[in-house]
Simulated assay, not measured.
Amino acid sequence: MRFTVLADPASGAVLGVPERMVPKRSAVPGGTRWQSADGRLTLESRSFPAGSTDLEALFARATAPLADRKVTYKLKRPDFIVVTGETASGRSYLRYAAGPAGIRGFAIGYEAAQAADVDRLVIAIANSFVPFPNAPAEAPRIAAVPATKPPATGLPPAGMTSQVTAPQVTAPQVTPPQVTPPQVTPPQVVGTGLVVAPGRVLTASSLVETCPNLRVGAAPAKVLRSERGLALLEAAGLPAPRLPGLHGTSASEDRVVVAADGAGVSVAPGAMSGEARVTAPLQPGSAGAPVLDRAGGLAGLVARYPAAPRLVAGVVPPASFPVIPEDVIAAFLAEGGIATKPSAATAGSVGAAASAVGGAVIGLGCTR
């Protein structure tokens, strides 16, 4: 497979193109389309001028519910988005990045039967993608050095013995240097917590095992209890608690995982895969994340997250993660004086399910 990294004049981006696999080339609005001879594999570069749209609108369009498509992963950051999807016979990967020149990205679609080969191709394309290759680098700041003159001796010319008036010396004006205060970097999100009562956060005990000094924002979190794979923390400045009802007897294995990350909260659709495990495209920081059924009922908490997850095209693909089930959570909370109740809601969309814990899912940092 010949893989060529090339500049695409139509979009302005640089990306890798497997030219032998996609020999058919044509122009599309704002980009270029490369396609295989049989039409089973399509790669497109895309671009949008500044002000014509934004990542929020593109993300909403890419994740909008469709009867014949399932969104398998979605990630939104201030400067880029990634969305992957599946249909009955195909898969897709989409990435957009925002910059001063607008938005640039690429999309690739292929048949599910090609996944073994094309999944690796997606990784290569994503790693080669440079949305704004001509973005000017920040010029180095060079301090100006004032010109100097030879110092005056203050002595009279030769032969002159009369009174000498000392030269007037004007003191140079010194501008005090501007001191930029050091930027304080907030603790990296290492896990997720759910505010279940005033001043109380429920999370996975695996976080306590790996970081004894957990924090909520800038505030330290005190470990009140840690057992059965769960931990109850105490912290100040928490949002209002939202403890959803417990998962009922629904036969559906569909799940929704709501996890914290550096940009806020991410929602990942998933499904139960065996006893006390969920398969979903979870990203770092998902340990302790609530696992909900499609009615918003609490079905468990993600027990732990691997230290070195496998990446595909820069993101973690769907994988199986251990879950602490809802009955263990109920017993643990009851021992701490926090009552639970069964969920009475009906199944709905992924967004509706995630709203059951809206505002109460927080990121947990670690101070080493």
Rank of each mutant, 00 (worst) to 15 (best):
Q163E: 13
G248R: 10
E19L: 14
P290C: 02
P309D: 09
E234P: 07
L155F: 07
A268C: 06
G229C: 08
T148W: 03
V164Q: 10
D293F: 08
P177E: 10
S320T: 12
Y110A: 10
K24S: 11
G99D: 01
L207N: 08
M160T: 02
A231Y: 01
R25V: 14
P167W: 04
K74R: 15
P23M: 08
A97H: 12
A276T: 06
P325T: 02
A240T: 02
F106L: 00
P317A: 08
R228P: 05
I338A: 14
V357C: 07
A126H: 12
S286L: 13
E56A: 13
G274Y: 11
I338L: 09
G39T: 06
S320R: 04
G105C: 00
S89R: 11
A236H: 07
P150C: 01
Y93W: 15
G105M: 01
D254R: 13
E253M: 09
P18M: 00
L311H: 11
R95A: 13
A88N: 06
L66T: 10
A313C: 09
Y73E: 12
G358C: 07
T153S: 15
G358P: 13
N127T: 01
V190C: 01
A97M: 11
P269S: 05
A299F: 05
H247C: 10
A360R: 03
A171V: 11
P133E: 00
R40K: 08
L121V: 03
P322F: 05
G30S: 09
E111W: 05
D254C: 04
I125Q: 00
A13N: 14
A98S: 14
T53V: 03
P187Y: 06
G274K: 14
G39L: 08
G12S: 09
R95E: 14
A235T: 03
A295F: 06
P146D: 05
R255H: 06
L214A: 00
Y110E: 06
S273Q: 12
G358T: 13
V312G: 02
V118E: 01
T340R: 14
P181M: 04
T279D: 04
A126Y: 05
V201D: 00
F48I: 09
V164C: 05
P309W: 09
G363M: 07
V350L: 05
R294V: 12
P49R: 04
V122W: 06
V357H: 07
A139N: 11
L292F: 11
Q168P: 02
A353G: 08
V350Q: 01
V291Q: 10
A235M: 03
T4W: 11
